[in-house]
């Protein structure tokens, strides 16, 4: 990390009206509506991780609309999302409370999607 810039991170944090922090990052959900919504094939599944091919992405933002938790967005004309940092994500490493964890439990992922969707709705 030679430069610290939250704007360039692949995770964002919002705050719910109830005061909770909402980390917005791709949970690599099994239904991946972003991939289905992509008109150019710029979003692809690789070993269960949705990745962005910046060469092909045209920045249309369909993925942004399709994501139930808005964990993918357009920045400088390209889709940006969490690609799990080669399975060693620093966000999880430096999270002081354990709110962000790397897990392969489908149940945990579904639970997180549910709670983030609820929080987003209230905010």
């Amino acid at each position: 990390m030679e430069e610290f810039s939250p704007a360039r991170a692949k995770i964002r944090v919002l705050e719910s009206k109830e005061g909770h922090g909402i980390p917005l990052l791709c949970l690599q959900c099994p239904t991946h509506p972003c991939v289905d919504a992509c008109p150019t094939g710029a979003l692809r599944l690789e070993d269960g991780v949705v990745k962005v091919d910046e060469e092909i992405c045209v920045g249309c933002g369909n993925c942004e609309q399709a994501c139930p938790i808005r964990a993918i967005w357009i920045s400088e004309g390209k889709a940006v999302k969490c690609e799990l940092c080669s399975l060693d994500p620093p966000c999880a490493k430096y999270c002081p409370t354990g709110a962000i964890q790397l897990t392969d439990s489908l149940e945990k992922v579904e639970e997180s999607i549910r709670s983030i969707t609820t929080l987003r709705r209230t905010s």
């Binding site: 990390m1 030679e2 430069e3 610290f4 810039s5 704007a7 360039r8």
Partner: peptide, 22 residues
């Protein structure tokens, strides 16, 4: 609102100090 970054002169040393600090 800003998208600039704060550049660190010695990133490896900084991370080492950070981890020790944590």
């Amino acid at each position: 609102r800003g998208t600039k970054g704060v550049r660190v002169a010695k990133p490896e040393l900084f991370i080492e100090l950070l981890e020790r600090g944590i």
